[in-house]
Design a binder for these strands. Structure first.
Lengths: 243, 243
DNA sequence: CAGTGGTCTAGACCACGTT
DNA sequence: ACGTGGTCTAGACCACTGC
């Protein structure tokens, strides 16, 4: 691990433990450089990490302070979006029912979203995730075999993300998601136990590896009383758009 | 404007105009440093900007390439979320009806979201935004007078964001948003012309200035057939969470 | 004016991919 | 082996804030 990342982790922990309190000043960059026995530029790279995560506010002339909401931001960071399995890990019981698992050729829409040709086969996986035995989300994922291999129904009944990161040793990069509301369809009524008039929150996303290859196009549908997406935006990477 | 930001803008333009094509290599950092007559570190800071915006992919050993989707990412960046007025600027006609405009004291929920005391008065503004004469969104904003002053009903019928940035000369910083689906309420039926069974997409957000002060807590409700939120995530600032 | 963060340099070494 | 991007240094100057 690089020095500036180690320092960033240390500083994050100091905020988490209240060593640096919300609203209070951090030591100056020069003091931190002395403490960690490094240069000011390295401290600045560490502070960049905290700044990107919205944990600190830097003001030229007056110093660096711990951001308001730093504690709730830390909560969100600690359960970063890496699939439903990780989100609920330890707190709730997640079970997954694989409703469909097949390999087929992609339709034109999927070809476009995944940037693959019509001859590249894809996994088509439909899963129902339950949290504490209550239906939580209905997930339909398309993954190209050119990127993801050796996926089985058994793996799909656990965490596909863990399989990709740990077993295939691939690094997940950026994603683009569109969040919309919709009326319940037949499958929503059947599996999520939605009645007529009970809205669905749908998240459509394409997820990429860090090398830029798209590895998943999915549509996830939530009951409106169990769904919701939280987005944190900073001026640096203003990354959310209402359409 | 600092040198690295100028260079970042130049490089973004080269991607926009197709000078650097999607998937193709950029010149190496050394070549760029020579071209711009600067050091490699400055080029790297410029590339950080593009990387944060998901416009490029950097691979140790093999070089920097223009990201897939760079063109659609540019589209999104060019209409960053700065209020509905800016989003539709030039393309559609946005009109705003101010349905309620008052100054009052905040309730406990609003006090918490805006981090203000019970004695700090707030503006309470309810607005209906129409795009091309069709109802688009119903927006309920709470803003503390300790931050925003001299707001009038006339200003509210235009763009409050432009007023804050241009007239008050304040800089907008981070925001935190929660996106949910909901059933239509009385106001939705009245103003957004929703029927029973037509879902609402709701965005609740708290927006901060760059100095960390919260200046707006709002709830915006969209017709399900005219709403949607797009979110771009990168590993750097993974900033979205399903709850 | 003193102290803070922001920018920039010239050069060094390392980690990684490709050939 | 070579070229790429990643990290790091020691020092400099600038911009801004607050006393």
């Amino acid at each position: 691990m690089s020095q500036y990342k180690e320092i960033a982790t240390t500083l994050k922990n100091r905020i988490k433990t209240g060593d640096y309190e919300t609203g209070q000043h951090l030591p100056s960059q020069k003091e931190l450089a002395d403490e960690f026995g490094t240069s000011r530029v390295t401290i600045q790279k560490a502070l960049d990490e905290l700044s990107n995560a919205n944990l600190i506010l830097r003001r030229q002339g007056s110093g660096t302070t711990v951001a308001p909401n730093s504690q709730s931001t830390l909560d969100i960071l600690s359960s970063q979006y890496e699939g439903t399995t990780k989100l609920f890990e330890g707190r709730n019981k997640v079970t997954t029912q694989v409703l469909n698992f097949e390999i087929r050729l992609p339709n034109p829409h999927e070809q476009k979203r995944l940037a693959i040709s019509s001859s590249t086969p894809v996994y088509d996986v439909l899963r129902l995730r339950n949290v504490d035995k209550e239906p939580y989300e209905l997930d339909h994922s398309i993954m190209p075999l050119s990127v993801i291999q050796n996926l089985t129904e058994e793996i799909a009944s656990g965490s596909i993300y863990k399989f990709i990161e740990s077993t295939l040793n691939l690094k997940i990069g950026s994603s683009i998601r569109k969040i919309t509301a919709d009326t319940p369809q037949k499958n929503d009524q059947k599996y999520l136990k939605c009645n007529h008039g009970e809205p669905i929150l749908q998240v459509s996303q394409t997820v990429h590896l860090s090398d830029g290859r798209a590895f998943e196009y999915s549509q996830t549908r939530h009951r409106y009383d169990k769904g919701g997406v939280i987005v944190i935006n900073n001026s640096l990477s203003s990354n959310s758009l209402d359409v």
